[in-house]
Computed example of a mutant assay.
Amino acid sequence: MSLDNMNLTGHFLIAMPNLTDPYFAKSVTFICTHNQDGAMGIVINRPTDMSYETLFEKINIKLEDTAIANDPVLYGGPVQPERGFVLHEPFGDWDSSITINEKTSLTTSKDILEAVAVGAGPKKLIFSLGYAGWTPNQLEQEIVQNSWLSVQAKDIETLNKILFETPHEEQLNAAISLLGFDPAMLSDVAGHA
């Protein structure tokens, strides 16, 4: 895949050991869009101290679905950390969503939260504050500089298991396992033949 037509939409980005930026060290980012305008994703393995219950109180929505009340809100990235992003399956008829693949979407409108609050929203979801963003060709250059590994799940079931069912502290190793080698083999030095 050349840098000119690289499209990592639907891929996991795994931070390499040499990536020491505090926002991204040891992170897994799920890429929601990647095109000529740049890339956008959600860091999926950075839970905050804020629960869904606390978040819903802050936005004045009564959370009636107590099963998710203690789930952590994620730190999705350093861009617009005051804004909420819901990564979810399945689709729905929400005011502001983008389709990532045949089953997964990202929604930023309040109507999804109102539905989730009463148990009528998607059952598989991640709520994050903020996102990770890259300008045109920035992500490609960071990959060339050995900051990231990208990997795509072999199927939607595997993808959604990592996104929605794997504990956050295990998501890094789950994403690395998709590459088919021992995480200890990762080097912080780029090699060129």
Rank of each mutant, 00 (worst) to 15 (best):
S105R: 08
W94I: 07
A120D: 14
I100T: 12
K110G: 03
L106P: 04
I100S: 15
L125A: 03
W94R: 07
T107M: 07
D93I: 10
D95I: 08
V118P: 07
V116I: 15
Y131N: 13
A120E: 15
I98P: 00
K123T: 11
S96L: 06
V118Q: 07
A117K: 00
D95S: 11
G92P: 12
S96Q: 09
S96D: 15
V118L: 05
L129G: 02
G133A: 12
T108M: 14
P122F: 13
D111F: 05
L125H: 11
S109H: 09
E102V: 00
L125R: 00
D95H: 04
K110R: 12
G92R: 06
T104M: 06
P122L: 03
L129E: 00
K124S: 04
A120Y: 09
G121S: 09
K123G: 13
E114F: 07
L125I: 01
K124I: 00
K123A: 10
S97D: 02
S105H: 07
Y131M: 12
A115F: 13
A117M: 03
S97Y: 04
S105T: 15
S109P: 15
G119C: 10
I100V: 15
E102R: 01
Y131A: 14
N101Q: 00
G130C: 02
Y131F: 13
S105M: 14
D111S: 08
Y131K: 13
N101E: 02
E102W: 03
F127C: 02
T107S: 14
N101C: 03
I100K: 09
N101L: 01
L106T: 08
S109A: 15
G130E: 02
I126F: 02
K110L: 09
A115E: 15
I98A: 11
I112N: 12
A120T: 10
G119L: 10
S96R: 08
A117T: 05
A117E: 14
D93S: 14
K124T: 01
I112F: 15
G133L: 01
L106F: 05
K123S: 10
G133S: 02
L106C: 13
T99C: 03
